[in-house]
Design a protein around this nucleic acid. Sequence first.
DNA 1: CTCTAAGAGATTTTT
DNA 2: TCTCTTAGAG
Length: 732
Amino acid sequence: MSSLLDALNPEQLQAVTLPSQHALILAGAGSGKTRVLTTRIAWLIQTGNVSPSGVLAVTFTNKAAKEMLTRISAMLPISTRGMWIGTFHGLCNRMLRAHHRDAALPQAFQILDSQDQLAAVKRTLKALNIDEDRFQPRQVQWFINDHKEEGRRPKDVADANDEFGRRALQVYAAYDEQCQKEGVVDFPELLLRCYELLQRNEPLRAHYQARFRHILVDEFQDTNRLQYQWLKQLAGAGAALFAVGDDDQSIYRFRGANVGNMADFEREFHVPNVIRLEQNYRSHGNILDAANALISHNRKRLGKNLWTAAGEGEPLWVYEAQTDGYEASWIAEEVQSLLADGRAGRDIAILYRSNAQSRVIEHALFSQGIPYRVYGGLRFFERQEVKHALAYLRLLANPNDDAAFLRVVNFPARGIGARSVEALQDAARAADTSLWQAAARLSGKSAASVGAFVKLVTALREATQGLPLPEVVAHVIDASGLIGHYQAEREGADRVENLNELVNAAAAFVQDDAYVAQFVADAAESPAAPADPLSAFLSHAALESGENQAAEGADAIQMMTMHSAKGLEFHVVFISGLEEGLFPHEQSFVEEDGLEEERRLMYVAITRARTRLYLSYAQTRLLHGQTRYNLPSRFLDELPKGVLKWLTPQLGRALGERAWRAEEPPAHLNRAARSSPSRLPFRVGQNVVHPKFGQGVIVNAEGSGTDARVQINFGPQGMKWLQLEYAKLTAA
DNA sequence: CTCTAAGAGATTTTT
DNA sequence: TCTCTTAGAG
């Protein structure tokens, strides 16, 4: 047992060996959070504090859950089968499957992903005759999810006094009713339904409360209201809740995360143990100094300061480029020399605030022949052809799934036009049935073609009865005509390949130990729970959308948004686009506490780096087809001067003289400047200071002499046109 | 049904 | 500027 604890520092050790009480672990970036969490579980089991089946550990991503499982298995000689380790959604799904009857769900209920949900919302809008232009489906979807995540059903939503609120509520009610009818649930519904199940079903609640003696939560700062309520409920009968999180790394408020849960937890549970993990094992001192200094500008913090036993290391390298294109080529060159020095591509990450920024950088890397990998984008199970195949499979499992029905009723094309579908929808609405049921008893003109579809699905179901899952999938993609359709298409080769890959995914799935384990566990939990590999696979497809990109093997530079970088670490990190308006994003200026969230994002970005960190920005950036002149990000000013090493002459802010101006930008890059009247003492792109508005950049100019006016971007102070004759401008 | 053209919109993301 | 969605023509 001692070997388990050997490598821990005093705080980690304390956290791991806490008595069976509530605990809040404030774990800074790189402080060994996952290690503490997993060692805690192993320690609890090994010391006999709890049996594996008494453990519930919950994460946000499948990746994190898998990682946890792997690490625990490595530490313990026992099987992890009895443990409930997974994502919030995964665990709720599991519980709902085991007790579907009590949750008023069909045995093979299907899960709608965000895409499916949006489509369903659109259908509801149409059914209610609501104008999509005035009431945007996305807004309505957001409205629905927001209420669900606060635990509110339509009846719990307060009457709105605005038109949108009233209509959206109407849609919410109709949408929920429709989902219930079809036997489908969206993501937030998984949580809410599970929460309500436990709330209403006293014996069931008591059962799980008695079972889970230790509940552990990862990334607690990212939990939303409902997730917190769910945890509270499960821990309600004396279980020990062990929450690990970092308020400084809370960057997901836009999707409902509520950092306040940390303070609420401490207060409501009278948490006797609050432990701070502040020793960082990842980064060199200068990097941590920068991170600490930056985050100290935030007011709302629980407080924490990272330190390291490693040396101070290199300074942070800062680069100012004239344009986004130059910034990108500089990055590419720097990367090139790192690679030449023997640094592996996978150790280097290029981070940016928004996906749109990746393009220029990709271009630069590409033209230098540097292999790179961009994260984010379509995942395997989100691909069109895969979704089509899944829709057929969903219909086999649950024919009342209208979303699946609509997706493939005429794909591949079989002559069922929009009007036939509409007629069918009307019939279904009138008879209050699913489309499938309406189709089955349809008569009239479109009966033939729709009938053929019904026959096809029925035939698929019969032909695959009793077959192993991979064979079911193989049969469906072929007999549905999907493969044939894409083979006939000019550029369909990749899609055919993906469809075949789906067969492999199914084969891998049924062999996966996690699946087998869950199946065994659920059968034990509720003998009534059916062994249905197809439904399980479909849940898996919805809950785990698969890898981001295929080319895994090759060594490549990692490119991603700062958000997706959370939880990762790299030897070398580039943070690009450090410009006011971009990062911090201009949207954050108007959001409540928006700047603090942006600053936390910067904090996350900085703390990804182990040994070397580059910071860069451009004076000029092409955005939405327009040249924008941005000020350097305020975050640069918030870093300690001593740890920064400028690779370019500083803007003259400190010097009072613009040494950098000595070097004229290439003419082709300076079109705006050339076109502005040359007599002006100022020019476009120049940094200036205004007594009232502070520092700004001239972005436009017109007129001459006493008429001369310039437009200046003062960052957060906004954009202003100023008459040169009166404005007391000085060069920055 | 498929193709083209015009229009809107353009943070951040997992499940 | 670019990309995605949707409306209308062929």
